[in-house]
Design a protein around this nucleic acid. Structure first.
Lengths: 342, 342
DNA sequence: TTGAAAGCGATACCAT
DNA sequence: ATGGTATCGCTTTCAA
């Protein structure tokens, strides 16, 4: 084994004929050390390629400079973007990010949190799984004084800062856009009824319809279980073959919209002429399908940055962070799938 | 601050009237401790919710049970899949994964590696950036006896296990498939000439043409700089407006293929009837465009698993790992963009 | 089968 | 301005 030994503070002290404490202070630029000594120590350290032993420092300071991040799925445009933003912001504050995923299973989520807790992350970023009800596994962090910041899928049960998408506003503007484009019978493929994001998007949809005195119909609102492409396909079919066909579909997710578009294309229903389709998330994919899929951009990257910012602040202040909600505004990305006019 | 203190070994020892060492040994099921003592200690620990201080353990054992993972880009179907596989396999061996990204900049890569090194990861998984030439920043790990496993984009300069895609075979089978579908004038939009993956795919393309005694033309091979959709579009245009038009295009990447298809559709050139298009990577996106894009699947998830497996093995054996190449086979995914027959 | 004690490397308090 | 030393929590010889 080529285990080239690193030199330690003790080595430096011995070589330079000073004490370990002086060496430590010199390297960390403490007040009350002569410039001469500082210079000498730093030069020696540099020359001998001294690297402090992080494990010892962590141990001593009871900090790891590591943030845990738990997401339902990693192979996902939205979440990988959030992680990407989080990593960037974390780097700015000299934190590293430990990533784990739960596959939307609460059992895995609990395990992941336990691992994070025992690997002594300084704080936790989490987007809970669809299954998650009880949040005891998160409370454990707070009990130990380690802050948690929730993002995207959050639980009100846990008192912590939360970074979420303004789902209401996003849905509202999507539907308003459809109305402006002349669509009059707007359906909505929604998600799981108990998930907050779904509820908010549904609310945005309903209020937008109401505000514009549009026709509504309970038959035009359907709920996915899996939020899958297949469901998008099936529900689009169901809607379009019903007695009261809509002329536009607002989908809970781009993936669902993909499925809906697939059905419409297959049924030779023209998009956007006969039926408009709009999604939510603004996946990279939305650019590549034809017609291009209009969508609601969630600014995932910025959410990641914001979440880390809040977490780091809490860590710095040695508190667990206020129970406060930060809503990030969405923005409409109009592509061909809803451009009926001009 | 609700800093509920964790109990330590010392607390246990004191309460139970035994020594710290005995407590430690009992908890870690050492030989030579009476069953009685073991039972007593374990019960007490359980009851008082004892959790060993990982930082202390790490420090003492000089291990962190953490693996560093550096990728060029995180928001990328291929890389997020590899990471996903890596996390899963790591969990199996009780390792956590620290993720960092370089945006294809060697400067960031060096920084990321330094951070990983100083946060004392037990080993490193890396896919180097396009810019990376010299690998001194990786050699540092080996010099400290910490194994490195390279994957996907690898450098021969560093002696380490490497998990790569069999680009040659993938390209060969893609081109062979085109030939079988009756295409006779096959062009190739390749990547950067100095990148190994590009070279191998080009080689697969050339050899496949040769083996089937197909027409070739230097004008049919072009090189991307960015591997972008725009380049795919432009090169497809260039190829299709040249004097000797190809009837199929093998693209270095699905993204490039997306661009090529966009041009073809815009130019009203029918896919797959007039021109066949095949990509490489098998992005999720390939499913959603129409026509569906045929592609070469790289089995990214398995690559992640394999890389971790090799790394953990090296760590366990306390060696840096052999300089050995593990090629993962690709598989052809045929969709509509190349189905000229049947 | 158990205990005492020596560290691991860095920090910070208390002297001087 | 500097040195000495206790300490963080755990593991691991060495003794008994």
């Amino acid at each position: 084994m080529p285990d080239r030994k690193r030199i330690t503070l003790k080595d430096i002290a011995k070589e330079l004929g000073i004490s370990v404490s002086t060496a430590s202070r010199a390297l960390n630029s403490y007040a009350g050390i002569s410039d001469e000594t500082v210079k000498m120590v730093k030069e020696f350290a540099e020359k001998h390629n001294y690297v402090p032993n992080t494990m010892a420092v962590n141990f001593r300071k009871n900090k790891t400079m590591t943030i845990g991040m738990v997401v339902p799925e990693l192979v996902h445009y939205f979440f990988s973007s959030v992680i990407s933003g989080a990593i960037k912001e974390a780097k700015k504050h000299h934190y590293s990010i430990l990533v784990s995923q739960t596959d939307e299973l609460v059992k895995n989520e609990i395990m992941a949190c336990r691992t994070m807790l025992s690997s002594s992350v300084d704080g936790l970023l989490i987007s809970i799984s669809n299954e998650t009800g009880n949040t005891d596994h998160l409370q454990e962090f707070l009990d130990e004084g380690r802050p948690v910041v929730q993002f995207d899928k959050v639980s009100d049960q846990l008192s912590s800062p939360k970074v979420i998408v303004d789902d209401f506003q996003g849905a509202y503007s999507a539907v308003q856009h459809l109305i402006e484009q002349g669509y009059r019978k707007i359906a909505h493929i929604n998600g799981l009824q108990h998930v907050k994001n779904s509820q908010e998007r549904l609310r945005g949809y309903s209020i937008a319809l109401g505000d514009h005195e549009m026709e509504g119909s309970s038959a035009w609102v359907v709920h996915c279980q899996e939020i899958s492409e297949a469901e998008g396909f099936d529900f689009a079919k169901q809607l379009m073959t019903s007695s009261n066909q809509p002329d536009a579909i607002f989908c809970i997710t781009d993936l669902v919209a993909m499925g809906a578009m697939k059905y419409l294309k297959q049924a030779k229903i023209s998009i956007p002429k006969e039926v408009g389709v709009i999604g939510f998330s603004n996946w990279d994919m939305a650019n590549f399908v034809s017609p291009g899929l209009s969508s609601v951009n969630q600014h995932a990257y910025q959410m990641g940055e914001k979440a880390v910012e809040l977490l780091v602040e809490a860590i710095k202040n040695n508190e667990v962070g206020k129970d406060q909600i930060f809503e990030t505004k969405t923005s409409l990305v109009v592509r061909e799938s809803t451009q009926r006019l001009g």
